[in-house]
Computed example of a mutant assay.
Amino acid sequence: MTVARACGVSELEQDAPLKVELEGHPICIVKDSAGEVFAIGDTCTHGNISLSEGFVEDDTVECWAHGSRFSLRTGQPLNLPAYEPVPVYAVTIDGDDVLIDPTVTVPTSEKEN
Score class of each variant (00 low, 15 high):
Glu112Met: 13
Met1Phe: 09
Gly24Pro: 08
Asp58His: 11
Ser50Cys: 12
Thr60Ala: 08
Val91Ile: 08
Gln76Val: 12
Ser71Cys: 13
Gly24Val: 02
Gly75Gln: 13
Val30Cys: 07
His46Pro: 01
Cys63Pro: 00
Leu78Ala: 06
Gly8Ala: 08
Ile100Val: 10
Tyr89Asn: 08
Met1His: 13
Pro107His: 06
Cys44Phe: 01
Thr2Trp: 09
Ile93Leu: 15
Gln76Arg: 14
Pro85Cys: 08
Ile49Asn: 07
Ala82Trp: 11
Lys111Val: 01
Val86Gln: 03
Gly41Val: 01
Pro17Leu: 05
Ala90Val: 02
Lys19Asn: 09
Asp32Cys: 09
Gly54Asn: 07
Leu18Ala: 01
Ser71Thr: 02
Asp94Leu: 09
His46Gln: 01
Thr92Val: 15
Leu72Val: 01
Glu21Asp: 15
Val61Lys: 00
Ile93Arg: 09
Val86Lys: 01
Glu11Gln: 15
Asp96Gly: 05
Leu22Lys: 02
Thr103Arg: 14
Leu72Pro: 06
Glu112Gln: 12
Thr60Val: 09
Glu84Met: 14
Asp97Leu: 03
Ser71Tyr: 12
Ala90Trp: 10
Gly67Phe: 04
Val106Leu: 15
Glu23Ser: 13
Glu57Cys: 11
Glu84Phe: 13
Ser52Tyr: 04
Pro17His: 02
Glu23Phe: 05
Glu13Trp: 03
Asp15Ile: 02
Gly8Cys: 03
Gly54Thr: 01
Leu51Glu: 05
His25Met: 15
Thr45Glu: 04
Leu80Asp: 12
Leu22Pro: 01
Pro26Thr: 03
Ser50Tyr: 09
Val9Cys: 07
Arg5Ile: 15
Ser33Met: 07
Val88Trp: 13
Pro77Met: 04
Asp101Met: 07
Thr108Tyr: 13
Ser109Asn: 12
Gly54Cys: 07
Gly41Tyr: 00
Gly75His: 12
Gly67Leu: 02
Leu72Ala: 06
Pro87Met: 11
Lys19Thr: 03
Thr92Trp: 12
Phe70Asn: 02
Ala34Asp: 15
Ser71Val: 02
Gly95Pro: 06
Ala39Gln: 03
Phe55Val: 01
Ala65Ser: 13
Leu51Ser: 01
Ala39Thr: 05
Glu57Lys: 11
Glu36Met: 12
Ser33Gly: 09
Glu53Leu: 10
Cys63Asn: 00
Gly95Ser: 09
Gly95Asp: 11
Ile100Glu: 03
Ala6Arg: 03
Val106Ile: 14
His66Ser: 10
Glu57Arg: 11
Leu51Arg: 01
Gly95Tyr: 10
Phe70Tyr: 14
Leu12Trp: 07
Ile100Thr: 00
Leu78Pro: 03
Lys111Tyr: 08
Ser10Asn: 11
Pro107Ile: 02
Ser50Ala: 14
His25Asp: 07
Glu62Ser: 04
Phe38Arg: 00
Asp94Glu: 15
Pro87Arg: 10
Asp59Thr: 12
Gln76Pro: 00
Asp58Phe: 10
Val91Met: 05
Asp101Asn: 14
Ser109Gln: 13
Asp101Lys: 06
Val61Gln: 03
Phe55Asp: 10
Tyr83Ile: 10
Leu72Phe: 09
Ile27Phe: 06
Ser71Pro: 04
Gly95Glu: 10
Ala34Gln: 15
Ser10Met: 02
